[in-house]
């Protein structure tokens, strides 16, 4: 008798548990991600930029015959957009990186573009991977997603074919992690959150790779789940294994963690006032919204204070005040 009650109960409990894991958590995480990120960006936006403080990394626009650096020191909005594009798409500033080294008792500066390369490789391959995942969320699969997948798996290695972006992302993440562990200086500045973010990303990538090339997963089931999530008609399909579950939970953790960690640099990079402003402070008036009057030492006060000395030195006094 008890068994008759217990079995369906347990089954439904298991079903509910699975529902929470496969549906509840992703929804919550994504909501936190979107809400949190918006909250962060709005928070930044609410603080004004009182002064125009671009870091100028090249010649200013001044006399017409002097060649200016329109992208490293833009004087127009368009130039600033260009500068931001270089920054966001190609990591311009990191590209400048060099290493100070002592030789013959003097500093010499050598190239150091590994970080730039690693960061570029990581971010771009991550973007490619994210876009490729659209094949699971959209039905029918957009042509550009299919095309990306095709190019990404151009080299026929294994079945399914190896995605180059997967290799790149793993190598780049490994590099980013190892440099933190290897380099004493970076180990010194690294905090828990630095490792946490890297490990989450690495874990997510590894489980993803494992599903594709190792343990396998029923892609159709995964896609049904994904479409269900995307269209608010969640289904809990059978056949998604434990690896997928870990993958999903890690992604959820990453999404939920995102707004509250350094990962918000994704949004922040666009708002950096040392980069996204045109260096036109002397060309155009810029208003500080909270500019308030301050106590100054006015000319009248000053003249009053130094009247004798001004007279003695025959420096002309202000006629308006001079009686």
């Amino acid at each position: 008798m008890a068994a008759l009650v217990a079995v369906p109960l347990l089954a439904s409990a298991a079903g509910v548990g699975k529902g929470i894991l496969l549906v509840g958590i992703p929804y919550a995480a994504f909501a936190i991600f979107l809400g949190g990120l918006c909250w962060r960006v709005v928070g930044w936006a609410r603080s004004p930029v009182p002064f125009r403080i671009p870091t100028t990394c090249g010649q200013q626009t001044s006399l017409p015959w002097i060649k200016s650096a329109p992208l490293d020191n833009p004087s127009t909005g368009l130039g600033a957009v260009g500068r931001m594009a270089l920054e966001v798409l190609l990591f311009r500033s990191l590209f400048r990186n060099n290493r100070a080294e002592i030789y013959d008792q003097r500093y010499v500066f050598g190239d150091s573009k590994w970080l730039w390369l690693g960061a570029l490789a990581f971010h771009w391959s991550l973007l490619v991977i994210l876009l490729r995942h659209l094949r699971l969320f959209v039905q029918p699969v957009p042509a550009f997603v299919l095309f990306m997948g095709k190019v990404d798996s151009f080299f026929q290695i294994g079945a399914p074919a190896l995605y180059l972006s997967n290799v790149v992302v793993l190598c780049a993440l490994a590099y980013l992690l190892l440099r933190r562990l290897w380099d004493l200086r970076l180990r010194y500045i690294s905090q828990f959150s630095d490792y946490f973010a890297l490990l989450l990303l690495l874990g997510t990538a590894l489980t993803g790779v494992l599903m594709r090339y190792g343990t396998r997963v029923d892609v159709v089931a995964v896609k049904r789940l994904a479409i269900g999530l995307a269209t608010f008609q969640p289904v809990v399909p059978d056949g998604v294994g434990i690896v997928f579950l870990i993958h999903l939970l890690m992604v959820s953790a990453l999404a939920a963690y995102f707004p509250f960690s350094k990962l918000v640099h994704m949004g922040g990079v666009f708002l950096s006032p040392t980069r996204n402003l045109a260096n036109n402070s002397r060309m155009k008036r810029h208003v500080n919204p909270w500019n308030y009057p301050v106590k100054t030492h006015t000319y009248a006060e000053w003249e009053e204070e130094f009247r004798d000395k001004l007279l003695m030195a025959e420096i002309p006094l202000d006629e308006a005040k001079h009686d």
């Binding site: 290493r99 100070a100 002592i102 008792q105 500093y107 150091s112 200086r185 010194y188």
Partner: peptide
């Protein structure tokens, strides 16, 4: 001290290197 001693890389530790 920690930096001067442990970091052998001359790029990272110029003073120690000198």
């Amino acid at each position: 001290v920690r930096f001067l001693t442990a970091e052998r890389d001359q790029f990272r530790n110029p003073v120690g290197h000198v």
